[in-house]
Nucleic acid binder design. Structure first.
Lengths: 158, 158
DNA sequence: GACACAATACTCGGATACACCTTGTCCGAGTCCACTAGG
DNA sequence: CCTAGTGGACTCGGACAAGGTGTATCCGAGTATTGTGTC
């Protein structure tokens, strides 16, 4: 999986802790995690295209959460970065070679291998969609109660 | 996900339909699906290393199933091709930047983001481990009752 | 006719190139702030 | 002192390279077959 997923989730959590009053520029977020600013900007653009963030240009611009954290699921963040298509792509090799020489088989029915793999991937997607970013943030603060306050202080929003 | 997973599953199913009496060379399996023989051989080697197949060299050599299909799960095939490590790799970016300047935080506890992603991936692995190749083969034959016979005929094992 | 032997053809296995995608970087368009000059 | 105008700096956004992993290929090591020559 792409490394940008981790960056995107952490940045969304940070934006949630800061509150949505003022936008946060990429340079600040990149400094907060020691990430390459231009590349992080690319990932944040993907989140904007997915409707999870809103971007405002200009000198005091930056990124803001489009929705509160409890309205964003992990599935949405992963889909925004990784793309909408499934990890397992069925290329229908059952139709080639030996399969091509047996026209009595009906290939209308879905490939059993693809069905089995898709079933597992559906479980993965369901588990991702069942977790909101607010729950992840709450789990993080459970081990560090004053985490949000520390983040606000570091970003000068104390 | 790597394309070799699809190839590996289909080849295992074919070996199961043929029965484990005689080994099947890579060239024959590759012809059965119109795949590049040398590269398919590489994938089958991975299955041998994982203990799913056994290889026999020599002129009448090839690959055989090390276990019957109902003793092989989809999870084992995926792990054999894709490798044992998880798709989501936590790089601990929470410790860098702003996290590095707040030493009061204890980083012994696992990262909440990593925990959430791992939970979803565990659901995926459970769904894969719950399905045996015998079940996949049965699902395929449910739509094409004489599929195994057709495969045996094509491979000259009628 | 039976047996020993060597040549042979065919198989796996690992070492070796090629291609695409992820990662990383750069520069331009747009926007808001701040300073300045005039009323 | 207040206000309109302008310069500037900072931001996002997309276009442009570099590296790494997956994809594909080739050649060598090893083995059972098969044909031949001899007893």
């Amino acid at each position: 999986m792409s490394e940008g997923v981790e960056w995107a989730v952490h940045c969304c959590l940070t934006l949630g802790w800061l509150g949505d009053d003022r936008p946060v520029p990429t340079s600040r977020l990149a400094a907060g995690y020691e990430l390459p600013p231009a590349y992080l900007n690319k990932q944040l653009q993907a989140l904007v295209r997915a409707g999870l963030l809103t971007s405002t240009p200009g000198v005091r611009g930056g990124f803001r959460l489009a929705r509160p954290l409890d309205k964003i699921t992990l599935m949405e963040v992963v889909a925004a970065i990784e793309g909408p298509d499934d990890a397992f792509q069925c290329t229908e090799i059952r139709r080639r070679g030996s399969g091509a020489e047996s026209p009595e088989r009906n290939f209308r029915t879905p490939c059993a291998v693809s069905t089995a793999m898709r079933k597992a991937e559906l479980a993965w997607r369901r588990a991702l969609a069942a977790q909101t970013l607010a729950e992840v943030a709450a789990a993080a603060e459970r081990h560090a109660p004053n985490l949000g306050e520390g983040v606000r202080r570091w970003y000068g929003r104390g």
